[in-house]
Amino acid sequence: MQKTADVFKDIENLNWEGIAAHVHEEKGLIFSFYANLGSYDSYEVKFTKLEVANLGEDTRSYIWGDGFDEKSFEYTPNDYVNSYLLKGYYSKEVLDYSVITYNEAAYVSGGIINTIHEHYPEAIYVDYFAPAPEGDDDKFHHWQALRFVYEEVEGEWYLIAIVRDVFNP
C-alpha cells in the first residue's frame, strides 16, 4: 500500500524517474486505458523501465485508447496523466481517489470486465477509486479507478501495469 501511495504521488508530480524506480526490470510498465488487460481493445501502451524514467521529456504522442465515438486519445505521457489519470473522463475535474482497496476492485462495472487476475495470475493490485459525485443521478457513471498491478521478484514487488477503469455500458 505504501509503495502505491509513493507511485501515486509520483504520478501527481509527473516524477517519471520516481515511478521507474518501482517498475519491473524485465517486464517494464503497461498503461491500459481500460480494465480488460490482454484484449484487443484494452489499448495497452508498454514502456521499458528506462523509457519510463524518461517519459517526462518525451514529446511524442501515443494513442492511449479510444472512446465510444471511436475518437483516439492521442497525448504525450505528461498530458495523458493530467487529462485521463488525474482527471475524470466526463468532468475533467481532478478526481478524489478516496477509496483504496487491496487486490479487489472497489466497484465492479457491468461493462468492461477487470481481467488483471486472468492476465497476470501471480499479480496483486491496489485499486484507487474515485466515486461518482453524490446527489446527482445524471452523473452515476462519472467514477474512475486506477489499478496499480505488481508482480513479485525475489521478495520485492515491482510495478508492471497501471490500469484505468471507467464506466462502460
Rank of each mutant, 00 (worst) to 15 (best):
M1E: 14
Q2L: 15
K3H: 05
A5H: 07
V7N: 00
F8T: 07
D10A: 13
E12H: 09
L14G: 00
W16N: 02
E17A: 14
I19M: 03
A20M: 01
A20C: 02
A21Q: 10
E25K: 13
E25H: 11
K27E: 04
K27S: 00
K27F: 01
I30V: 14
F31I: 14
F31G: 05
S32T: 07
N36G: 13
G38H: 08
G38P: 12
S39Q: 13
S39R: 14
S42P: 13
V45T: 14
K46P: 11
F47D: 01
K49C: 00
L50K: 13
V52Y: 03
E57R: 09
S61V: 11
K71M: 07
T76A: 11
P77N: 01
Y80N: 08
Y80M: 05
V81N: 11
S83V: 06
Y84M: 13
Y89A: 12
Y90R: 08
Y90W: 13
Y90I: 09
K92C: 02
E93D: 14
L95T: 00
D96Y: 12
V99P: 03
I100V: 15
T101L: 05
Y102Q: 11
N103H: 10
N103E: 02
A105I: 05
A106P: 10
V108T: 15
G111Y: 07
G111T: 10
I112V: 12
T115F: 01
I116N: 10
I116Y: 11
H117W: 01
E118Q: 15
H119Q: 15
Y120L: 01
Y125P: 15
Y128P: 05
Y128M: 07
F129Q: 09
A130W: 09
A132V: 01
A132G: 02
A132E: 02
A132L: 02
E134I: 09
G135K: 13
D136G: 06
D137I: 12
K139H: 01
H142Q: 12
W143N: 03
W143P: 08
W143R: 02
L146A: 05
L146F: 05
R147K: 15
R147V: 00
F148S: 06
F148I: 13
E152L: 08
E152F: 04
V153C: 11
W157K: 15
I160F: 00
A161G: 15
D165L: 07
V166K: 07
V166Q: 06
F167C: 04
